[in-house]
Design a protein around this nucleic acid. Structure first.
Lengths: 124, 124
DNA sequence: TCATGAACATAGTGTTCATTA
DNA sequence: TAATGAACACTATGTTCATGA
């Protein structure tokens, strides 16, 4: 088991790490993308919001998902005649993936609710 | 001037520090509360969301606002016959306060929009 | 004793460097 | 050379300790 760690007594908004994991799981379920491609997808999606995660964020999230047994990596060649290797990911444990997604969606909703409350309080 | 610091290339959600400053400015404008009271106000407000900032968060935010000339502190006795001293805050620079509020509201809105987008993408 | 504030430790994250084929 | 991964540094934040009247 992973979660011996004590939960923080306070919780503000969803952490970027979890946010990224949610998108990674979605991309991994949908199709065959490697790390940098998933990074580009997220950047494109949030370009207008100015959110531009860096590659270390994506790799750290992928590694945590691999280490916790949620996904697995498979080495491929970028093209047939290419020397460049890439890593394609697959869901390894659907149950664990579902738990992460459920928890993540919950935190997304809680965060949205918290921000809405603040906007009601603070907006002119 | 304060903001020589380079803006981060990436921006995810609003930082807790700024979030707290917005509420502090509101409380300071509205009435005469000291630090711990403002902390309790925020905790009460977000009790149902499970957001429970600690006292260091509030003091750090207050000190930054004082150091940047936005507010000023005034020493008081808790009660007439009390030895306990408290600090009551006042707006010192309305202009600076307005800038912080404006920027904060903007980040609140941006954050809310980002979360909404993610929920649309990720929710079942 | 309680409000304030400082010290300390750690987590999260952005930037830079390294590796591999 | 591009994709991956590691190292490093710094910021944000939570916890604990200290102070003053």
């Amino acid at each position: 088991m992973m979660n011996e760690k004590q939960r923080a007594t306070s919780r503000f908004l969803i952490k970027q790490r979890l946010f990224i994991k949610l998108y990674l799981l979605k991309y991994i379920e949908d199709g065959r993308l490697y790390g940098i491609q998933m990074l580009e997808q997220i950047r494109d999606r949030f370009q207008s919001e100015g959110y531009k995660p860096n590659h270390a964020d994506i790799y750290r999230a992928l590694h945590e998902l691999v280490d916790s047994g949620v996904i697995k990596a498979s080495k491929r060649k970028l093209t047939e005649d290419s020397y460049q290797e890439i890593l394609i990911y697959y869901i390894r444990d659907t149950q664990k993936a579902a738990i992460i997604k459920e928890q993540g969606i919950k935190e997304l909703k809680d965060s949205a609710a918290l921000l809405k409350k603040a906007l009601d309080d603070l907006e002119d």
